[in-house]
Nucleic acid binder design. Sequence first.
RNA 1: GGAGGGGUUCCCGAGUGGUCAAAGGGAUCAGACUGUAAAUCUGACGCGUAAGCUUCGGUGGUUCAAAUCCACCCCCCUCCA
Length: 427
Amino acid sequence: MTNVNLNIVEELKSRGLLAQTAGEDELEDHLLSDSRAVYCGFDPTADSLHIGSLVPLLALKRFQLAGHKPIAVAGGATGLIGDPSFKSQERKLNTAEITQAWTASIKEQLEQFIDFDSGENSALVVNNLHWTENLDLIPFLRDIGKHFSVNAMIQKESVKQRIEREGEGISFTEFTYMILQSYDFAELNRMFECTLQIGGSDQWGNITSGIDLTRRLNQKQVFGLTLPLVTKADGSKFGKTEEGTIWLDSSRTSCYAFYQFWINTADADAYRFLKYFTFMDVAEIDALEEKDKNAQGRPEAQGVLAKEVTRLVHGEEGLVAAERISAALFSGDISKLTESDFEQLKQDGLPASGSTETLFPLVQALVESELAKSNKMAREFIGNGAVTVNGEKVSDNAIELTWDTAFFGKYFLLKRGKKLFHLLYKD
RNA sequence: GGAGGGGUUCCCGAGUGGUCAAAGGGAUCAGACUGUAAAUCUGACGCGUAAGCUUCGGUGGUUCAAAUCCACCCCCCUCCA
C-alpha cells in the first residue's frame, strides 16, 4: 500500500507535514544526495508518550523509510530542566529518580516505532544525559555558553510570552533549556554525523539555535525541519477527551479507548489526520475522501484512520481487540451477545469491574464504575435518560441491581451517554 | 534589601462585610437532532435525596456575619538596589 517516496521533503510536503525548514532548497538536495542521520528529541514529562508525540515519531519512521537513519533522543537531561517553549507557566521540577524512570519507559516506547534492524540506516535511541551529566560548569559556560547571545535568546517567540507577559516569569533553569537542546544537536552531529533535527513547530527556536551552535562549534552546516502542530477544525485541543490525555501506553489508554478516540474524529479532520498519522499513500487518501463525499451517510475515513493508527501503536492484536469491542457495543443488538462474547469483551479491555454484592443501587454502580463522578451526577444522568443497563434505558434513580436480572446471571453492561460503557460482572 | 501589584471554584476572569456556592466567558458532560460527525437548541457543571455541609494561597484574629477587614506567613510578577 505504501509507495516509498525517496524524496522525503516532497513526501512530507504532500502530507501537509512540513511547517518550516531551515536550509531551504539545500535541505532537499542534502537529503537526496545521501543517507543522513536525523534526530528528534522526546522529553519525559510522564511515564508514557501521548499522541502529541506521534507526528514527530512517525516522521522519524518516514525518514527511515526514505533511507535515512533516525535517532530518537530520550531527554534524560533536558527532562530535568523543562522546555519553556510556548508554555505559559514555569513547570514544577521532577526528582531525578522520577525523570530517570520516565526516561527509561519512554525509551522503550520509542524503540517500538523505528526499525533497529535495517542495516546502514538502523535506528538509534540515545539518552542525552549521557553527554551532559559529566559536563563541568565552568568549561561549559566558557566553551558553549559563549556562543549564545542572551539578546537573541530573549527574542525567541517561544519564550516571549514568558518574558513579556505580566504575571509570569521564567527561571534561569528553563531559560537554559535552549542551550542544552542546542548542545544535543552539536553532540549528535559530532558523534553520528547527524545533520538534521526535526520537531514540532514549537521547537523551531530550539532547533535553529542548535543549528547555530553546531556551526560555531563544529564548523558544520546542519539543517532543521518542523512539523505542524496538530489542530482540530473546531478549535479545541487535539488529543484530549473527557478521560484526559490519549496515551500510547495501553495500560494508560486501552487499545479500545485509543481506537475509539480516532473513530470519533470529526469529518473535517479525518483526511488530514490520515495524512499525518498513517503511512497510507496520499493518492489513496484523496480517493477515499472523494468516495466518502459522494456516498450517503457515514464516511469511511474514521474507520480507516482508527484501524491504521491503532495497528501502528498497538499492533494487530490490539487492533483486533479494539474492533471486537467496538463492533459489539456500537453495531448490533447488545442482547444478542453470548456469554463467551462477554468474557471476550472483558479480556479485550472493555472497562470492567467485579462485584460480590448481591444487590446494590444503580446510582452506586455508576459511581463505582466511574461512569459518574458523584451520586448527584449519577442521578442527573439517570434523570436525563442517559443511562442504559443491558440495553434498556433506565429512568428511575432508585433502581437496584440484582444478579438474577443480569445477562447470564452475571453481566451488567452499563452505558452512560452515547459512547461510554462499563461491564459489571459477578465476582 | 526597598517600592508597588497579585494569588477566587478545571482554565480565564468578576466580586472589596450580609442579597455569594460566588457574575461572565471558555472547556467539559447530558438530552434533542444525527452518522459513535459538525453545527444548533435545551439543561447540568463543589458535596449531599434533603435539611444542610465544605470552598475563594496558609494560619490566626475582629465581627451577629468575611472571598471581602486586621496580623503574620508562603508563593508569583514588575521596578529599584
